[in-house]
Nucleic acid binder design. Structure first.
Length: 673
RNA sequence: GCCCGGGUAGCUCAGUGGUAGAGCAGCGCACUCGUAAUGCGCAGGUCAGGGGUUCAAAUCCCCUCUCGGGCUCCA
């Protein structure tokens, strides 16, 4: 009589016959040795389960390997368990809360007895304890329990009990789905030693020896369930990967991000600073940073002018009434600086937004449909009272300048306006070398929202169809829009793959209503315009910071504060150097000259560190033959004997082209990438 | 705002109760040089600010400001 068997279906449609009771591990082994080694969990009918669980007959299965996104999540989750086990061993009485995998790693939240805190010095010994657990090859043993048993097991773990109680209340409808998901419909636990058991839905790797390519990175405070009114826990972050190479690559990426940090480069390249005397989150731009900023603004102005915008200017402070009418004082007050009170009791606020001012310009007289769409643009400097803990370099500040515009249009014009606007946005970002985008569309929130169904539907659909037409990835943030209108935001991937939210396009059905905006239509009746808020850079400060990081401080020639620097080899080449300098400047280029008070090598070095696109050397040969030695940024060898007029034209062409990197003679773009 | 860790010369940092230091940058002098650091010298600090403990505080304690890493939020 044959042994009983089961049959499973693999992702390629093929079928595999296995002995009854075979597990995911058995399946992987049956397919191949390499797969058996790489397997961490198995997907059964769309659900990830432990390798040790028997496979059901007839199931669709897929072996998940360590190097996949899902595999890494499992590794990280399991590593988090080991972290909790190590902490519980080293800090008796520690309570453990949750420890999920996150992008690139994991964390685990703890409450230490007596309100004790982790310190950086604790990380190495915790890591050592984790490595000991890994070396012991402890199996992760899954078990299922009733809610009552779960509460019993975790009698001394209030956070676990709270999660279990959430599971017990499933069906009551008011359970945080994330917490419920942590445990599943029944209470499952994973035990990997006599002393350590954790509440967890799983799955996990088979045993701790599967782990090991991890490191703990930092300690931080975090609120239980992210709620600042609940206890603050101690969080330990770590990163974990499938191999030493992957871990090393990740650590290298972190180092690269640090090298590009705009705060560091901002000081090194003398671009901007944050003087303590002024206050947190308030930047000053130095001459070189100010220059880059001015070029950005000038380019933006030109483009807005071409796109049919009108330029306006509005004050930085206003009486409180304006923000009462707009509603900002109702829902944005804590994001605003406190008011200045005048003798008469009148209160003035610094503006956190420009919209109400632009609205007043619209409303300054009766408007005709012939004037629409009216596009009012301003580099508007606004002030927002960010909480002290959140300010961060130029990306999160308290004083910022938006490239802000408000478009007032008829509903019939809305679709076309949005379409051209998205084109404009992507084209402008592209001009700054940001080419890799995806879009996020935030739609109508459930419950009350301002504006008619038709307006919402039409606007959302317009945004969606325009995005689809651009064949960009569109991430739906369903119900994530504000109550006053749908929104599309442009997420940009930078040179090292990080994403930043830059531009936003926001429909607003509310403010036209609150301010009673109207226009007279062709039908001689009054109509309410629709309002679009939009910022392309978002904030100039943030955009500037992102550009610094994107280019690692090496701005394209058209943006570079110093585009070319002339270096005479000796003092007696100075006259020729000055002639060259004048020619460069006559060509509209930003150039300077550094005389021979230091050796040429030192001046070359400084120019390279300052990331000047063109370093031009003038020596005996050049004086004699009207040439120059050219060092193009990014090239490892200088070009000698380049004819001056040709060189000037070449740099001017590079600047005018707004190319991302200066062209190097004899090297095409593809070869440099 | 809350938690953890910082703040010493322009920058990067050493100095843990007993006379404030180094490298780089700056300034001066010399060097006049062909592609990533020329040499010598000088100057530079209320050790973030304030209060306290002590014979004595950069160092120990308290408060404030500020920076970094997080939580939360967002442009």
């Amino acid at each position: 009589m044959p042994e009983p068997t089961i049959e499973v279906e693999l992702p390629d449609g093929s079928r595999k016959v296995l002995a009854a009771g075979s597990t995911g591990a058995d399946l992987a082994a049956a397919i191949g040795r390499r797969l058996a080694k790489d397997a961490v969990v198995v997907e059964v009918e769309g659900e990830l389960v432990d390798l040790s669980r028997p496979l059901p007959d007839g199931a669709k299965v897929r072996v998940v390997v360590a190097g996949s996104d899902e595999g890494r999540q499992v590794l990280r989750h399991s590593t988090a368990h080991v972290l909790a086990q190590a902490v519980c061993a080293l800090f008796p009485g520690a309570r453990y809360a949750i420890g999920p995998p996150i992008a690139d790693g994991f964390y685990y939240d703890f409450e230490l007895p007596g309100g004790a805190r982790f310190h950086d010095e604790d990380l190495p010994r915790i890591e050592q304890a984790m490595r000991a657990i890994v070396a012991e090859d402890q199996p992760f043993e899954r078990a299922e329990h009733s809610v009552a048993d779960g509460l019993e097991i975790f009698a001394a773990q209030p956070f676990k009990r709270e999660i279990i109680e959430g599971v017990g209340a499933l069906g009551a409808g008011d359970v945080d789905p994330e917490l419920a998901a942590e445990a599943g419909p029944v209470v499952t636990t994973y035990r990997n030693s006599g002393s350590f058991v954790d509440l967890c839905r799983g799955p996990h790797v088979a045993s701790t020896s599967r782990l090991g390519h991890f490191t703990l990175t930092r300690v931080a405070g975090a609120y239980w369930r992210g709620d600042e009114h609940r206890p603050q826990l101690q969080r330990i972050y770590g990163t974990a990967w499938e191999s030493e190479e992957a871990l090393a690559a990740h650590l290298h990426r972190l180092a690269e991000a640090e090298r590009r940090d705009h705060r560091k480069l901002g000081a090194e390249l003398d671009l901007f600073s944050f003087p303590d005397e002024i206050g947190s989150g308030l930047a000053v731009f130095h001459p070189k940073g100010g220059l880059v900023r001015r070029v950005m603004e000038e380019y933006s102005r030109t483009r807005h002018e071409q796109a049919g915008y009108d330029f306006v200017s509005t004050p930085h402070i206003t009486k409180s009434q304006l923000f009462e009418t707009s509603g900002h004082l109702d829902w944005f007050a804590e994001g605003m600086f406190p008011p200045m009170e005048l003798d008469g009791g009148e209160r003035y606020y610094l503006k956190p937004m420009n919209c109400p001012f632009h609205i007043l310009i619209y409303r300054s007289r009766q408007r005709s449909y012939r004037e629409l769409p009216m596009r009012l643009f301003e580099f508007g400097t606004v002030y927002r009272y960010e909480k002290s803990g959140v300010v961060h370099g130029l990306t999160r500040v308290r004083g910022l300048t938006q490239d802000d515009a408000h478009i007032f249009c008829a509903r019939t014009e809305m679709r076309e306006e949005l379409a051209s606007l998205l084109d404009f946005v992507l084209d402008l970002l592209g001009a700054f070398g940001l080419e890799d985008f995806y879009l996020e569309l935030s739609t109508r929130p459930a419950g009350k929202a301002v504006g008619s169904d038709e307006e919402w539907e039409e606007a959302t659909e317009a945004l969606r169809s325009v995005a689809v037409a651009k064949s960009l990835d569109l991430v739906l943030d369903d119900g994530g829009g504000a109550f006053y209108g749908p929104k599309i935001s442009v997420q940009v991937r930078d040179a090292i793959g990080r994403t930043w939210q830059m531009s936003t396009i926001q429909l607003d059905f509310q403010l036209p209503q609150r301010f009673g905006l109207e226009y007279v239509g062709a039908d001689n009746a009054r109509h309410r315009p629709i309002m679009i808020h939009r910022a392309l850079f978002g904030s100039i400060e943030r955009f500037f910071g992102v550009l610094v990081e994107h280019y690692a401080g090496a701005f394209p020639t058209w943006l570079a504060p110093v585009q070319a620097r002339v270096l005479p080899v000796r003092d007696d080449h100075d006259a020729s150097a000055q002639v060259l300098l004048a020619q460069l400047r006559d060509a509209g280029l930003r150039a300077d000259c550094e005389g021979a008070s230091e050796p040429l090598g030192a001046r070359i070095r400084r120019g390279k560190l300052e990331k000047v696109p063109y370093l031009l050397v003038v020596g005996d040969d050049d004086v004699a033959s009207g040439t120059v030695g050219v060092n193009v940024r990014g090239s490892d060898a200088p070009e000698r004997g380049v004819e001056v007029a040709h060189l000037v034209a070449r740099i001017a062409a590079d600047a005018a082209s707004r190319a991302v990197t200066p062209p190097i003679a004899g090297v095409d773009e593809a070869a440099r990438a």
